[in-house]
Nucleic acid binder design. Structure first.
Lengths: 132, 132
DNA sequence: CCTTGCACTGGAGTGCGCTCCAGGCGGCAT
DNA sequence: ATGCCGCCTGGAGCGCACTCCAGTGCAAGG
């Protein structure tokens, strides 16, 4: 089975070497196996777990909750229902996050339009300064 | 013209009192006017600026960039083009942010579906354990 | 008069998630 | 033999954005 050097994992996952070590230290990755010289050799499985971690992190899941999820995975098959619950809950949060982002974005876009209107006004009625 | 006490502004904007003071300290708000006792009295304009700040912060603009925007606003009308540029640039980032969020979300949803499939499999073929 | 509440100040502290560092090791290309 | 590269460790440090604190002040209500 294929293994990956730290450098390759950095390449594949986009996490920095320090971040990978950090994740192992805090138990977000379980202990990574080592070669004779004590260097890490990541398995396919480690890398795919990191892919999941990437999804969760980038959607704003705090590390503490990812640890909880990692724990469930380690506890085995009987936690699958709970994992689904956790992920669905998070999925809802992501949905809410996107909705909020869209709403705030529209506020920004209104401001852009407002400024554009000011400029247009200025072109049409030169010399008539407006406030704000 | 209406003024707002700190408590009212907390209520209206959702920023904490400490955050409001912090924003004033770093210059994201210009100096807020005071009553005889030295207490802050926010104007309508302050509150509406805070509304903009809320949009920018919640869409992930760092404080340093909001300071830059605040500076442009203070410099007057001739910076409107630049303000538009800044906001449009940010708008694009928000768009990218949402796209990324959607993509990562779909990764999570695939995982949820995978787990659900595992459960369904387990119901259909009891006694046949699967891995991962 | 006294408590309660809201607000004030400057400065220190917090939490998160990394990120950097010094000092060292093993292997390989020149 | 000598670099140099990639990696190792434990621990310290960092950047961001707040958040909290001690000590004080005014003002209105019981």
């Amino acid at each position: 089975m294929a293994v990956y050097t730290p450098g390759q994992v950095v390449e594949e996952t986009g996490f920095s070497l320090d971040t990978l070590r950090y994740y192992e230290r805090i138990g977000l990755l379980e202990p990574i196996s080592r070669n004779a010289a004590g260097q890490r050799r990541f398995t396919e499985e480690d890398v795919s777990w990191l892919g999941m971690v990437r999804c969760l992190r980038d959607t704003g899941m705090p590390i503490a909750e990812m640890l909880r999820f990692a724990q469930l995975v380690r506890e085995g098959e009987h936690t699958i229902e709970e994992r689904i619950k956790l992920l669905e809950e998070h999925d809802r949060k992501v949905e809410a996050q996107i909705a909020d982002l869209r709403q705030k974005q529209s506020g920004i876009q209104r401001k852009i339009q407002y400024y554009k209107d000011v400029l247009a006004m200025r072109d049409m009625l030169p010399g008539c300064e407006q406030a704000s």
